[in-house]
């Protein structure tokens, strides 16, 4: 099975063909989505009616391109807004969590660690409804008790941010912990010996060392937030992020406009991922 052991040629060829077939299977759906973004037709399907850029830049009905389609651009804006908040919040909490579990021994540490992992094994939709139920309990309680109507506790952007944050934090914590574990603590001690206070030592020695993981965590969180569907679906209000807006359109029937949005999404996220890899390499 491995190169150093000789196998019959037929077996090697069959194996290789299988792997090739697998990658064709991986690429096929993404490929057709991209190709049909340029089809000069109202439906993203055969027959091919010629090449056009109209689904990107078109400004006349029925072919209004992505960049001139207001609701889609607004949804994109919402997604970016949510993703920035979720990533920033989860990197902050992820960092404090990583330091906590890496540096301290305290009662119930094991239990808290398992609880910290829990959001990964709770289905996204259950996470969404539990937050929805709790926030509306809170909102109703405050309204009946105090007469306050708190808008942020009703479905909408703040709840979507909290919902996504609730499980993305676990992933970011794991990313940052992995790097913090490899840190050589004698470096920090050297800083302390040279007269730095504990906070200065962490700020000037440990944080720069962690930077690739912080950036990586931010990137992963950003992508996960941008793509999230299940949790968002339960918490969304009138400002729909892109995945929800596209889902609503897809239910009504699809036009190549959706292909164009999808292609832009693919380019955007692979661009971001490449940037992250390059950044990691440079370090």
């Amino acid at each position: 099975m491995i190169p150093t052991i000789r196998q019959p040629l037929s077996l090697t060829l069959v194996y290789r063909a299988y792997v090739v077939l697998f990658f064709v299977y991986l690429a096929l759906p993404l490929l057709v989505v991209s190709v049909f973004a340029f089809n000069d037709s109202l439906f993203p399907s055969l027959p091919w009616k010629g090449f056009t850029w109209n689904w990107f830049f078109g400004d006349q009905r029925p072919m209004i391109g992505v960049f001139n389609e207001r609701p889609i651009m607004r949804a994109l804006n919402n997604s970016a807004f949510i993703a920035v908040f979720v990533s920033a919040l989860s990197v902050c909490v992820g960092t404090t969590n990583a330091f906590l579990f890496n540096r301290y021994n305290f009662p119930l540490r094991g239990l808290l660690y398992v609880l910290m992992l829990l959001p990964l094994v709770i289905p996204g939709i259950v996470l969404g409804i539990s937050i929805l139920v709790f926030s509306s309990t809170l909102a109703n309680g405050l309204e009946d008790g105090m007469g306050w109507d708190i808008y942020a506790l009703r479905p909408g952007l703040p709840l979507v941010i909290l919902g996504q944050f609730s499980f993305i934090t676990t992933i970011v914590t794991l990313v940052i912990s992995a790097r913090l574990q490899k840190f050589d603590r004698t470096l920090e001690e050297a800083a302390l010996n040279l007269g730095a206070g504990p906070l200065t030592a962490v700020r000037t020695v440990t944080i720069p060392y962690l930077l690739p993981a912080l950036v990586g965590g931010f990137g992963v969180a950003f992508l996960m937030s941008f793509e999230n569907f299940n949790t968002t679906l339960m918490l969304v209000g009138s400002d729909a992020p892109l995945t929800i807006a596209m889902f609503d359109r897809l239910k009504e029937g699809s036009t190549p406009l959706l292909n164009a949005v999808s292609l832009l999404l693919m380019l955007g996220s692979s661009g971001l991922a490449l940037l992250m890899i390059l950044f990691q390499r440079k370090r």
Partner: peptide, 16 residues
């Protein structure tokens, strides 16, 4: 690569 793309896009691809 497919992971970098939203699940919605992947599903849309299979629909096409």
């Amino acid at each position: 690569v497919p992971f970098w793309v939203s699940e919605l896009v992947r599903t849309f691809g299979w629909m096409i």
